[in-house]
Nucleic acid binder design. Structure first.
Lengths: 212, 212
DNA sequence: CGCTAATCTAGAACAAGTTCCTACTCCGCC
DNA sequence: GGCGGAGTAGGAACTTGTTCTAGATTAGCG
């Protein structure tokens, strides 16, 4: 369960410290693994992502898979990082259009939610992994949280730093986002309920941004 | 993974429909199982709750354990129900004393948080189970959510029904509560951060109660 | 009391995540 | 071009949640 610092676990684009820079073949392997994971997850969710199958589908030995991603949770959290980066790019190209900051955040999250609805099984797999992650995945989960916070920060307004009050509001928004998503994914809330929860939380952002 | 309706899974004190009313020995077994679960969870958290050990410690065969609780997740969620009921009783005896509704909710949750801090491993086990639960545990998870909502509802003011706006606020509060707890339990947030998040979310309750 | 069905015990068996081992291959370097 | 070590393939082995089976025990009832 301990993370081996020498393993090629982190994203290559992060810190220059313990990341040994993957060779081309290694980067290709990593991509194959992530693609296989997405494929299996999209088909049957968390349970369908079986390490042996991921290994087989990505044409990599089981031991190699574990060298790249030290656990199933790490693998799925990395998949989420991957997806979030794509999403962030898309959102940068087409920013939300509302005038109120809170509404822009809500718009952004609803757009993200729509994207997740297209692959509900994949969403389920990633979110289950994210909330089930223990301390050994802290760094990766933190990175995911930072990505989401960035996405929301951009929606409030790209450029300036967020105020203290805005940051507090954003924290509650991300908590609500995660938790309401989980509730939806396990069939205990409707889509409109998710939307309502997001909207409620986003009023905090409007207030915080208005009172600056 | 399917719940067998004939199994003695539900709390005996609930609906009179499919619950066959446990005999004394059966109720004793159920209690032994729950106590063993708490004991193991308190020692080492989610991973330390191993079904074979629970069975052994509660002097019940493995098959019997599974008859009472169809999965480890069911078992831990039932443990949480148990704990929450105790908590609710305690809170009823000593209600929060603040004057503002939002502050009463915050006070209630912080008191609950302090209780959880006394057995962090147990808290971890229960919360991990709660968020990892899939559709087969919907009913039980819903019941837990209802309990928490009731606790918060009582804090707002026991007696009257909540308004629509209050309900929306309470939903965000519970989302924030769950998610910030998970963040704390996996070592990614400090205690004061948890408190701050709860306070932020609770301002929504103050507003909703003020605008009624 | 004696019967029958349900429940329980003990333990084997199975499934999937994880670890470990051995031989083979690739990479950087002399 | 050859060497040494890191990386990889292939697969056995181990762990723990879950299921299944066969033989006791118990509960309820005539």
């Amino acid at each position: 369960m301990t993370v081996d610092a020498s393993a090629p676990t982190g994203t290559p684009a992060s810190a220059p410290s313990p990341v040994p820079a993957l060779t081309e073949r290694q980067e290709a392997r990593r991509q194959r693994i992530l693609r296989a994971t997405q494929q299996l997850a999209a088909r049957g969710g968390f349970d369908a992502v079986q390490m042996r199958e991921v290994a087989e589908l990505s044409e990599v030995a089981l031991g190699t898979l574990y060298r790249y991603f030290p656990s199933k949770i790490h693998l799925l959290v990395a998949t989420m990082q991957d997806q979030l980066e794509q999403l962030h790019d898309q959102l940068r190209r087409k920013p939300p259009i509302s005038t109120d900051p809170g509404e822009r955040v809500a718009e952004t999250l609803m757009r993200t939610f729509k994207a997740l609805q297209r692959e509900p099984h994949l969403a389920e797999a990633m979110m289950r992994a994210l909330t089930f992650a223990d301390r050994s995945v802290s760094a990766e989960v933190d990175s995911v949280n930072r990505l989401i916070t960035d996405v929301i920060g951009d929606a409030i307004h790209a450029g300036r730093q967020l105020t203290r009050a805005e940051l507090a509001a954003v924290r509650v928004v991300t908590h609500t986002w995660h938790s309401t998503l989980i509730t939806w994914l396990s069939g205990r809330a409707s889509i409109s309920q998710v939307k309502a929860d997001i909207d409620t939380a986003c009023t905090l952002v409007s207030q915080a941004a208005g009172a600056e």
